[in-house]
Design a protein around this nucleic acid. Structure first.
Lengths: 226, 226
DNA sequence: AGTCTATAGATTGTTGACAATATGATCCCT
DNA sequence: AGGGATCATATTGTCAACAATCTATAGACT
């Protein structure tokens, strides 16, 4: 009865995944034009499925396409990155509220358990940006799905997070405040556990707002350059 | 310097538009399987571009696809439709706030002018759902773009609105309260004109919340069936 | 009789060749 | 010499045939 994984994995799906991770990890540089044939040889694909994947990526906003002129990875300005966080603030606030109302007790227990493992990871991998980013992603992912709001989860996980992760890799801006972020996560999880939707929403909004301000000051400092 | 319209219109774009409007207008029934060749003959297309369009529609959530089994128009339950309004509430609230901060005076004047024409349309086309829906769409469209938040506008206009419009057509649920909706629009426009972002956000959220409740009661009444 | 299996048909996914368009360099004109 | 138009090239968009997969029908077995 449980969703039987991806029964059949089509070439276009493969292309989609390859391209997506390549974009997120920064192997494909924004602004630079990328030829289709080059991509084909790179991922051992043929142009048909590749084009289909390009179309999907485009409609998700990770690529921009100009007819007969090729595609390039979207280049997001500093302002647009900050706008992204404004969107996250409202949407994830909603997700947190609905998650507080709808997550099962088991899911909440899991959520809190993952926070413990995140704590260990942070201590072990002192400042290793990668683990911080993955832990953070894991937490937000669980809440998005926990909202039981299909479209909301789809928009967050399918659209926004890829973009955010892309800039995480690129700017290696994994918050730089791991302990504080973890503490905020803990509080949000606690609010959810108490089924206090309003509080969960408030805390989540403040959490993301703090992350945004953090990036904002870094940009003004010149620590971050886009 | 002004965006030179769509210079070249590719077959895939054509397919995308055709399919999108067909879905929105309800010519393509949700849940029912649709063959590719059938669509090709219907829109005078070949399978290549069509498939690309299908991919785009799928990643926007208007179609669901099962490998080797075909595509079908997404069927949204009543609960999911209401969830959609919850998402709109937060996102359009943000849009209204940012629009109040960023729209030009000219844009605001235009916005208020369109409301006048909407009023006339409502009076002339007594209860004609179509015009109500179009006027409503126009208003929200202007605010979304007025937010100057590229990604936000993209998500609202490229994702949510198509889905909402789809269900507008299908349920012909054009609010059923045109005068009240217009009055709410007026107040939102006024708040934007006064550059009162907080108020604009509040009013927009309340406006969409009212629309959601309206649908909710209709569903419980049995007036609306999905 | 009901259920499971195997096969045939149809539909989707993929491939490689063909046509249309944009880019860049060359050449001509002012 | 600089700017603009022209043309060649390379790249993208499109097409039609081929291969792989699913669904439905029919048959056999329990």
């Amino acid at each position: 009865m449980s969703e039987a994984a991806i029964q059949t994995y089509t070439r276009a799906d493969e292309a989609f995944d390859c391209l997506q991770t390549a974009i997120v990890k920064g192997d494909l540089v924004p602004g630079e034009k990328i030829g289709e044939v080059e991509l084909c040889s790179r991922f051992n694909l043929t142009r048909g499925p590749l084009r289909e994947a390009l179309g999907r990526l485009e409609s998700r906003g990770l690529l921009v396409r100009r007819p007969h002129a090729g595609v390039k990875v979207v280049s997001v300005s500093a302002e647009e990155l900050l706008e992204l966080y404004r969107i996250r603030e409202t949407m994830e606030g909603l997700a947190a509220r609905q998650a507080a109302e709808r997550m099962t007790d088991d899911e909440i227990a899991d959520l809190q358990a993952t926070l413990d493992s995140h704590e260990k990871m942070i201590e072990q991998a002192q400042g290793q940006a990668y683990y911080q980013a993955e832990g953070d992603y894991d937490f937000h992912h669980r809440i998005a799905t926990g909202s039981r709001n299909t479209k909301l989860a789809q928009m967050l996980l399918g659209d926004l997070y890829y973009m955010v992760r892309m800039y995480r890799y690129r700017l290696s801006t994994s918050s730089g405040r791991p302990h504080m972020a973890l503490e905020e996560h803990r509080r949000i999880a606690e609010a959810i556990a108490q089924r206090d939707g309003e509080l969960a929403e408030f805390l989540m909004k403040r959490h993301i707002n703090a992350a945004r301000k953090n990036i904002e000051t870094k940009i003004h400092n010149g620590t971050l350059s886009i």
